[in-house]
Amino acid sequence: TRVETATETAWISLVTALHLVLGLSAVLGLLLLRWQFPAHYRRLRHALW
């Protein structure tokens, strides 16, 4: 049971790290898009909202 718990903890930390990385890359990508294509971003936002 001790090994299982350790594996579970490792998986949880791995998944958390993955989610953090994905979230950060998504935010960075959005910022980059907004910085590179302001007109396109505004049009996209206008279409979405």
Score class of each variant (00 low, 15 high):
Val15Cys: 08
Ala39Gly: 15
Tyr41Asn: 05
Leu22Pro: 03
Arg34Met: 09
Leu18Lys: 04
Thr1Tyr: 11
Ser25Phe: 09
Thr16Leu: 14
Trp11Pro: 04
Glu4Arg: 06
Ala26His: 00
Arg34Asp: 00
Trp49Thr: 01
Trp35Arg: 15
Leu18Met: 09
Leu32Cys: 10
Leu18Phe: 08
His46Lys: 08
Val3Phe: 02
Leu24Val: 13
Leu33Phe: 10
Leu22Ile: 10
Thr9Phe: 09
Gly29Asn: 00
Glu8Met: 07
His19Thr: 15
Val27Tyr: 05
Trp49Gln: 00
Arg45Phe: 06
Pro38Thr: 06
Ala10Cys: 00
His40Ser: 12
Leu28Ile: 13
His40Val: 08
Ala17Cys: 12
Val21Arg: 02
Leu48Val: 07
His19Tyr: 13
Ala10Asn: 08
Leu32Glu: 00
Trp35Phe: 15
His46Glu: 10
Leu32Pro: 05
Leu48Met: 12
Leu18Asn: 02
Val27Arg: 04
Leu33Val: 09
Thr16Arg: 03
Trp35Met: 15
Leu18Arg: 00
Leu20Cys: 11
Ala39Leu: 12
Ala17His: 02
Ser25Ala: 14
Glu8Cys: 03
Ala39Trp: 11
Leu48Thr: 01
Glu8Gln: 08
Glu8Lys: 01
Glu8Phe: 01
Leu31Pro: 03
Leu33Lys: 01
Leu33Glu: 01
Leu32Arg: 00
Arg2Phe: 13
Leu44Asn: 02
Gly29Pro: 02
Ser25Met: 12
Trp35Thr: 12
Arg45His: 05
Arg2Val: 08
His46Gln: 12
Gly29Ser: 10
Ala26Asn: 00
Val27Ser: 08
Gly23Trp: 04
Val3Cys: 01
Tyr41Pro: 02
Arg45Thr: 10
Leu33Ser: 01
Val27Ala: 10
Ser13Val: 15
Thr16Gln: 04
Arg43Glu: 05
Trp11Gly: 06
Arg34Cys: 13
Glu4His: 08
Phe37Ile: 06
Ile12Tyr: 09
Glu4Gly: 03
Tyr41Phe: 10
Ala39Asp: 13
Tyr41Gln: 02
Trp49Asp: 00
Thr1Trp: 04
Arg2Thr: 13
Val3Met: 00
His19Lys: 04
Trp49Lys: 08
Ala39Ile: 06
Ala39Cys: 06
His19Ser: 15
Ala47Asn: 06
His46Val: 05
Ala10Trp: 14
Ala10Val: 08
Arg42Glu: 06
Val3Trp: 00
Trp35Ala: 15
Glu8Arg: 01
Thr1Gly: 03
Leu14Asn: 07
Ser13Lys: 11
Thr16Ser: 08
Val21Leu: 13
Ile12Cys: 09
Ser13Asp: 11
Thr7Cys: 01
Thr7Ile: 10
His46Cys: 14
Thr7Glu: 08
Leu32Thr: 05
Leu32His: 02
Arg45Trp: 06
Leu31Gln: 03
Leu44Arg: 02
Arg34Ala: 07
Trp35Asn: 12
Leu31Phe: 12
His40Phe: 11
Leu31Asp: 02
Thr7Ser: 11
Leu24Cys: 06
Ser13Pro: 06
Pro38Val: 06
Leu48Gln: 00
Ser13Leu: 15
Ala26Thr: 09
Arg43Ile: 07
Leu28His: 01
Val15Gly: 07
Leu14Phe: 11
Leu32Phe: 11
Ile12Gly: 08
Arg42Thr: 09
Tyr41Gly: 04
Leu14Cys: 13
Arg2Trp: 14
Leu22Lys: 02
Val3Ser: 01
Glu4Met: 13
Thr16Gly: 10
